[in-house]
Design a protein around this nucleic acid. Sequence first.
RNA 1: CGGAGUGUAGUGUAACGGCUAACAUUCCUGUUUUGGGAACAGGCGACUCUGGGUUCGAAUCCCAGCACUCCGACCA
Length: 415
Amino acid sequence: MRQSQLFTKTRKEIPSDETSKNAELLIRAGFIHKEQAGVYSILPLGLMVVSKIKQIVSEEMKSVGSTELLMSSLQSKELWEKTDRWNDEKVDVWFKSQLKNGTEVGFGWSHEEPITSLMTYHVKSYNDLPVYVHQFQNKLRNEVRAKAGIMRCREFIMKDMYSYSTNEEEHMNFYNKTIEAYKKVFERVGLGGNTFVTSASGGVFTDKFSHEFQTICDAGEDNIYVHKDGKLALNEEVFNDKTLADLNVEKSDFEMKKAAEVGNIFTFGTKKCEELGLYFNDSDGEKKGVFLGSYGIGITRLMGVLAEVFSDDKGLSWPKEVSPFHVHLVRLGVNGTTVSFADKVYDDLKSNGFTVLYDDRDLRAGEKFADSDLIGIPVRFVISDKTVAEEKIEVKKRKESESEVVSLDVALKNL
RNA sequence: CGGAGUGUAGUGUAACGGCUAACAUUCCUGUUUUGGGAACAGGCGACUCUGGGUUCGAAUCCCAGCACUCCGACCA
């Protein structure tokens, strides 16, 4: 798109009410807008990043056999009472309201209950299982304290996936496939090297262990212990003598790191489905409870982690896979030849299937470069009165300081 | 939810209890400029978070509320 049509403005000044790097940069560059503490609107550039992340997650979820749906945000009290999770003493993040007639409703902070209830209408037999579904949805959680920019919000986008299996073995098969799929997600968004699968407690979800995906990041809220082999990692909450003994490892082989939880997976077992009346008839005619698993990735939090990890003193620096555009085409100068050449390159890039942010504004070079660095598209093409004579383009990568002047054909190889 | 701090043009800051609340930036007009956030001139923009109180006089002091940030507790 033409940058002259992008309504968002960049800011030089750091917002005084933000101290986290992710929020500072994302706000300054025009990716998000703060509405309240822990509540952010997503602006066009931010939405492009969110869409890229969603696309990657969606592809990987589909690769393990999940189909996408979209649950409602308003939820009924009765369902959550069946599993004893309506009570504010049990779940303290509920936002609740009531209908005009006094009926109480909750705003979805998670969807195990409603989606399991939904499944009772569709799952009757072992022939109907397994079922894997996921959605991208705005979760509402009444966090006592929002913090760290978009890392912990009261409203945020989450991918949640649910698996319904006939037995534990079938469940574990999917669970393990999902671990691999999650690893691919984090590799694809550029965080493969610093994201660890860690064992953690199940929290309010389950009595069993769960697995978290933790990305090493100063803005994170968790402390994890990474084993020197680089493969095993444990959350602080389960880093104790018993766990170490169970795993047969030495405490001294671990190093503590600050990390942000970008994904997690839980095994529920059959209890919740039984509480909500989700049973199936097995091949021998026996009625059995369905085996449930739950799998989350915080999409907006992931954007925050990406901003934290991929940025420098000049601004954001997106990995190629999640950048809002493939290339930032910066035009310097307004003489006719330069403009028409830049317009042509813009059209050529688009027709080659690339997404382009075309800085067609009549501003000085310094301001354009500063904006370009701040927004952080990985590749910049500069067209100016200097380069236009030979119909060349100056290519500069966001992470590098040198640039080269080449023809369009050569420049394309950088994308 | 405990503790600490901060609320002044869109943004970032200043102003001893005392003149029309200042400066920078953004934005608007114009001139000149055009490879790292240009220069000059003019202009718009603030009931100083809200409500009380002290005082001849409050952005400034006091109280309450609200908002925001940080620390802790909590936490997918």
